[in-house]
């Protein structure tokens, strides 16, 4: 830890931008690619993951002095799996349709590396308040990333935004964007864009120095 006191707000913001789980850390790729074929799916997935992330970070942080070091990963997975089961049953109760279209990917939140990663790297070493803020930030960053993929894919692949047609009748949908190949292309394009921004910022710094 550095000498500068980090505030809760910093913990929140770093997940959203500077340490964005998808674009910067390249974690949690499977759900990112699989469920982003529509805006609704992306939002539900983002919220479900954030919920699990917050709950697991809270409990890992709460029990961080009780869990022996050797069995910590197994204990974390148990905590995570419990809340994923809860989230799955909630989604099923609220909207059967969304539950069907997300399919096994709700259960697969268990193996989302972001959640285990935050539990191990952050919640096991920090206070409850900070851990929850960190989880909220990471969750928001993840949802933001899912949305930026979902919006592009639905707009181009279907010509709609959250089910509402955007373009006129003359629009020919790019079906490939809804198909698996499109997911790789859109994510690749976003990464290109962020790399470009990063390089430009570095160049500017050099000029200033």
């Amino acid at each position: 830890m550095d000498t500068k006191q980090t505030t809760s707000m910093d913990e929140f913001l770093k997940g959203l931008w500077k340490e964005n789980p998808v674009f910067v850390q390249v974690l949690g790729m499977c759900p990112t690619l699989a469920v982003t074929n529509s805006v609704i799916n992306s939002v539900v997935m983002g919220i479900a993951t954030t919920f699990v992330l917050v709950m697991s970070n809270f409990f890992v942080s709460l029990f961080r002095k009780l869990i022996p070091k050797q069995v910590r990963i197994a204990s974390y997975i148990m905590i995570i799996a419990t809340f994923v089961t809860v989230a799955e049953y909630i989604i099923q109760a609220v909207s059967l349709e969304v539950h069907k279209s997300l399919g096994a990917f709700i259960s697969l939140i268990v193996v989302n590396c972001i959640i285990l990663g935050r539990a191990e790297a952050f919640a096991s070493k920090n206070t409850i308040g900070k851990s929850v803020m960190d989880a909220l930030g990471m969750g928001a960053g993840f949802t933001f990333a899912l949305l930026s993929l979902g919006v592009v894919r639905e707009l181009l692949g279907n010509g709609t935004f959250a089910g509402i047609p955007v373009f006129g009748k003359g629009f020919e949908p790019w079906t490939i964007m809804i198909l698996p190949g499109g997911a790789f292309f859109v994510l690749g394009a976003w990464l290109l864009f962020f790399n470009y921004l990063k390089q430009r910022a570095e160049k500017k710094e050099k000029v200033l120095v």
């Binding site: 390249v26 490939i176 198909l179 698996p180 190949g181 499109g182 997911a183 790789f184 292309f185 994510l187 690749g188 990464l191 290109l192 790399n195 470009y196 390089q199």
Partner: peptide, 22 residues
Amino acid sequence: PGIAKGTAIALMIAGILSMAFM
């Protein structure tokens, strides 16, 4: 090109492979 190195180019290739597997 510099900005495409690493994950970005890997994802593009994966996209093409995925199309091939279709």
